[in-house]
Amino acid sequence: MVFAHDTEVALVAAAHLVNTAGRGEERLPDPAALAEFYAANGWTGRHERTTAELRSVRALRPRLRRLWDADEDEVVEIVNALLREAKALPQLVRHDAWPYHLHATPSDAPLADRMAVEAAMAMVDVVREGELRRLRICDFPDCDNVFVDLSKNRSKRFCDAGCGNRAAVNAYRARRAAR
Rank of each mutant, 00 (worst) to 15 (best):
P99L: 02
A32P: 00
R94S: 11
M115D: 00
A168P: 05
R23V: 14
S151C: 09
L17C: 07
A39W: 01
P141N: 11
V9E: 05
C143R: 13
I137F: 10
P31S: 07
F158H: 15
M1I: 08
L54E: 06
E72S: 14
H47E: 02
R176C: 03
H16S: 14
G24N: 13
H103W: 07
E129F: 06
A161F: 08
Y100H: 12
A120D: 03
R176I: 10
V126P: 06
A70L: 09
Y100Q: 13
P31F: 03
R27Q: 15
A174F: 07
A86S: 15
N165R: 15
E25V: 15
E85L: 13
T44M: 02
R179I: 01
V76E: 15
G22Q: 12
R63E: 09
V12L: 02
W98V: 04
E118L: 04
G164I: 04
A4H: 10
Y172N: 12
R166P: 04
R114Y: 08
E129D: 11
R23Q: 13
G162S: 11
S151N: 11
A35K: 12
K156F: 05
P106I: 06
S151G: 13
C143V: 13
A88C: 11
P110E: 09
H95Q: 02
E74F: 10
N170W: 08
A13G: 09
Q91F: 01
P106Y: 14
L92D: 07
V169M: 12
E85C: 09
L54K: 06
P29E: 08
A81C: 10
E36R: 15
R133N: 12
E8F: 00
